Each structure stands twice: as structure tokens, then as C-alpha cells.
Computed example of a mutant assay.
Amino acid sequence: MTDAPIEVVVTRLAAAPEAVRASAALLSDAERHRARRFAFDRDATRFIVARAHLRQLLAARLGVRAEAVEFEYGVYGKPVLSRRFADSDLHFNLSHCDDVAAYAFSCGHAIGIDVEAVREISDADNIAARYFSRLENVTYRSLKPRDRPLGFFNCWTRKEAFVKALGDGLSMPLDRFDVTLAPGDPAKVLRVEDTPGDDSGWRLDSLCPAAGYVVAIASQA
């Protein structure tokens, strides 16, 4: 990913109890309150460690202490740095699945990231029919059965990363843009509404951070 100022960091969220306590100490009161609302300790722990890692990664790039990082949230819940850090022009996004967390950073460009475990889903075909675009459905249904789980999650993560980069929730319907999804094909935006992907101003990247996982990153080109 050398054509644009994008940095991706992938970490595991498994942590010993003392490390979880140290991570919690880095969070704001609001973040600790949010952690207490999780029904399961495992989910609370993953949230605490993921958010602490985010603070540490941002702090290293901003030259401040992790506890001093401040967030604001968009209408649809996307976290951004507070106005205090506006001069940095640092954009970021994060995602986690199971105990794998992925973070993306960019200077001056909107960015979104998504990570998923590749697995078989019983109603994957129905989900694709409902949420994928016409072109994506044609491509997905042309895949051999053994390739469909990866094709499905290639498409899902790429669309999710793009929507997260926009930061507008689902204000753009998922069938209004096309992405590549076939295993082996480079990640790419093919269309955004009536604009060809090459002229859309958006870029997609993908990677496999660990066996059985796929990550997609969407950024302004």
C-alpha cells in the first residue's frame, strides 16, 4: 500500500487480566461505562483492549499520552479525533472480529476498514441477493461453491469499509456501488452510482492478516 499515505495495524485482543486492567486505565469514563454495558466479559475485554490499542496508536502519531486522546462521534457513530487535534489532519478507523483487531490511519484522506472471519453462512446467498449490487450478485453466483465464502466476505468487507469511510451510515444504499469480490481479483471500486470506479476518487485495498480472516480498507484516492 505505497500509492497513498495509508497505514494498517493488525493486533490480537487476547490479554492477561493485569493487561486488561492497564488498558482500562487508559480509557475515558464514557468508554469504561460502555465496556460495562456488554453482556459478556469476553466482549467487554475485547472492547477495552481494542480501544486502548487505538489510543496508544493515535497517541504515538499525535505526540500525546494515550489518556489525552479525545474523540468526537458523527451522527452515525463514527469516531473521529476531537477539534483539539484538527491540525493533525489524521483520519482513522478500526474494526475487530473475534480477537483480531484492525486499524487504519491516513493523513488528509477519509478512511474505513473492516475485518471478518471467512466462514460458511447458511443464508449467505439470501444476504447477497438483498445487499449486493446486481453486478456483484452475478459475480458471486458465478463462483464455485468452495470459493463462495471468501467471495462473500471479500464483498462484504469491501462494502463495509467503503460505507465506514463515508461515515454516513447507510445513506448510500449498498447496491449503488460495485466492488470486486472474486478470489484472486485485486480489491477495487468498480462503480459509485453513475461514476466508473477509476473516476470515483476511491481506492480499495485488501489483505489477509491471519489464517481465515480478510481485511478491506477503503480510502479517498
Rank of each mutant, 00 (worst) to 15 (best):
residue 150 L to N: 06
residue 25 A to Y: 12
residue 137 N to C: 15
residue 142 S to C: 08
residue 162 F to P: 12
residue 29 D to V: 10
residue 154 N to Y: 00
residue 194 D to G: 10
residue 111 I to W: 02
residue 110 A to D: 15
residue 129 A to I: 10
residue 58 L to V: 03
residue 160 E to S: 05
residue 11 T to I: 13
residue 61 R to F: 00
residue 172 M to H: 12
residue 105 F to R: 14
residue 209 P to R: 14
residue 201 G to H: 01
residue 61 R to N: 03
residue 106 S to N: 09
residue 127 I to E: 05
residue 1 M to T: 09
residue 158 R to S: 03
residue 119 R to V: 02
residue 173 P to A: 10
residue 134 R to S: 14
residue 159 K to W: 04
residue 68 A to V: 08
residue 5 P to A: 06
residue 41 D to K: 11
residue 158 R to E: 02
residue 31 E to Y: 10
residue 179 V to D: 03
residue 88 S to D: 10
residue 193 E to A: 12
residue 196 P to V: 07
residue 201 G to I: 08
residue 121 I to Q: 15
residue 208 C to Y: 13
residue 170 L to F: 12
residue 177 F to Y: 07
residue 82 S to V: 08
residue 60 A to Y: 05
residue 85 F to K: 02
residue 21 R to V: 14
residue 195 T to V: 15
residue 72 E to S: 13
residue 38 F to G: 00
residue 84 R to T: 13
residue 111 I to T: 07
residue 216 A to C: 06
residue 208 C to K: 14
residue 217 I to L: 06
residue 155 C to Q: 07
residue 128 A to L: 03
residue 66 A to I: 10
residue 81 L to P: 04
residue 200 S to G: 03
residue 201 G to M: 05
residue 9 V to M: 06
residue 52 A to L: 03
residue 167 G to K: 07
residue 65 R to D: 14
residue 63 G to H: 03
residue 183 P to M: 03
residue 138 V to Q: 12
residue 90 L to A: 01
residue 6 I to F: 09
residue 51 R to W: 08
residue 143 L to D: 13
residue 169 G to V: 04
residue 91 H to T: 13
residue 166 L to E: 12
residue 202 W to P: 10
residue 11 T to Q: 14
residue 73 Y to W: 07
residue 115 V to F: 02
residue 192 V to G: 01
residue 177 F to T: 00
residue 108 G to P: 04
residue 215 V to R: 01
residue 24 A to I: 10
residue 209 P to I: 14
residue 57 L to I: 07
residue 154 N to I: 12
residue 218 A to N: 00
residue 124 A to L: 10
residue 115 V to E: 04
residue 49 V to K: 01
residue 153 F to S: 00
residue 200 S to I: 09
residue 12 R to T: 15
residue 78 K to I: 00
residue 155 C to Y: 03
residue 53 H to G: 08
residue 49 V to C: 02
residue 72 E to F: 09
residue 201 G to W: 05
residue 135 L to W: 10
residue 76 Y to D: 01
residue 45 T to I: 15
residue 137 N to T: 10
residue 203 R to L: 11
residue 77 G to M: 01
residue 7 E to P: 00
residue 180 T to R: 06
residue 188 K to Q: 15
residue 205 D to A: 13
residue 220 Q to M: 12
residue 26 L to M: 06
residue 103 Y to W: 01
residue 16 A to H: 07
residue 182 A to D: 02
residue 172 M to T: 13
residue 37 R to S: 09
residue 132 F to V: 00
residue 147 D to H: 08
residue 205 D to T: 10
residue 213 Y to F: 15
residue 76 Y to L: 12
residue 145 P to T: 00
